[in-house]
Nucleic acid binder design. Structure first.
Lengths: 105, 105
DNA sequence: GTATCGTACAACCAAATGGTTGTAGATCAG
DNA sequence: CTGATCTACAACCATTTGGTTGTACGATAC
């Protein structure tokens, strides 16, 4: 995963509307207009949010008739979790290293 | 935690330089100028990145003499992890609900 | 066929982002 | 005291972001 991919992932999460979309499409299917009906903004604005999530691999779109069905994509979410877990591991290593130093002293 | 707080958290992670700073200050102490020396950008640019991380509660700054020492702040990182874990839990609930439906049928 | 619905996309706008340079105040070294 | 170092902050700039409206086109309903 490139830096740019990771940038896109976390940037996608940095907006409350987009986080809400991810939550909803994880649980159920929504068309883009179905999602648009939920928020106090234009259809085009929601369409852009979905596009951001799609580029970040957090949702997928699939054409069904004249609708575009949005679904959650678990892979993106897992990747984000995995990255934060790495940082956590670095932290724990530091903590245990400090404990070792204290044990020596 | 407000939506704006979460926005700031993930937005702070959405830049490779800032992620690198977080990694480094988790392991060791750095002054702002010490960090600035690591990247091909101006001191002021790095200063801004540190400010973004500080507002997101991912690092802390502490004055020591004429230097400002930057350290990792575990709380912000944990909060980010906790949030992604929530999404994961929602996903797992959905999956198990689908399994239930399949078991019924 | 015609009207409507769902979508895509362009053009535009204000505000935020990520960078720069320059200036000024503290602190430390000699 | 003087000069160098570290920091803070303002001003500026280009690009991106998050929103808008308007137009166009395929799919559906009647």
């Amino acid at each position: 995963m490139s830096d740019a991919d990771v940038d896109r992932l976390f940037q996608a999460f940095s907006d409350a509307t987009r986080r809400d979309i991810v939550r909803r499409v994880t649980v159920a299917e929504y068309s883009v207009s179905g999602l648009a009906g939920l928020y106090a903004m234009s259809f085009a604005a929601v369409q852009k949010h979905v596009a951001v999530l799609e580029r970040a691999s957090l949702v997928t779109k699939e054409k069904r008739g004249r609708e575009q069905i949005v679904r959650g994509n678990h892979e993106g979410l897992q990747e984000a979790r995995r990255l934060l877990d790495e940082y956590e591991a670095i932290w724990r290593q530091r903590v245990s290293r400090i404990a070792d130093i204290l044990a020596e002293g």
